[in-house]
Design a protein around this nucleic acid. Sequence first.
DNA 1: ATATCGATTGACT
DNA 2: GTCAATCGATATA
Length: 198
Amino acid sequence: MKLLDRRALQDVTNAARHLLGCEIHRTLADGTVLRAKIVETEAYHQKDPASHTYNGKSARNQAMFGPAGHAYVYFTYGLHWCFNVTAEAKGNGAGVLIRAAEPLTGITSMQQNRSLRAPSAQSSKMLYSLCNGPAKLAQALQIDDSLYGHNLGKPPLQIFEADNRDFEIVQTTRVGINKAVNELARFYVKSSPFISKP
DNA sequence: ATATCGATTGACT
DNA sequence: GTCAATCGATATA
């Protein structure tokens, strides 16, 4: 399995498309490896009023001004973490929000991280709701500020190239924002039942 | 200094 | 459909 090619992150919109189908590998302290396939992303560039980088560099967003292929993790609504992959050249504040993923391995651990009861477990409903939103995904994969700025080419959080790109991509407006609402910067795998919203 | 709101989620009417 | 949770960033004074 090949690590994510950073050349694919030079343009944030291309990056958001390219990340679909890629795999996130998260290694926990006890050695458990959680794997999930990205099925939904959103692009945020520096000229975008909806982006955290719109007003320039700050302590909070500085990771997005660094090199591509690192983690930008932010805290929101007083209780949630969200995970982004930094994009574009150093000095350019851009990133891709990872909005949803399809759980592949370590599902029991993800359930525990999400505090979901695991009775007759493995119901498709439970599986679909494990990572079908940015804060859910971060919680399931134990991604928080301890991984701020982390190089995604190294454990304990890595991204690998898609082993298969034979799927249809839908491009639409983003979710949960009040600025630049008409920008078509959200991408998802059309056939996936693991996305946050149709 | 104080007020508002957020790249969200889950519980509830 | 509505709304609380809960805190840091941002807007307003």
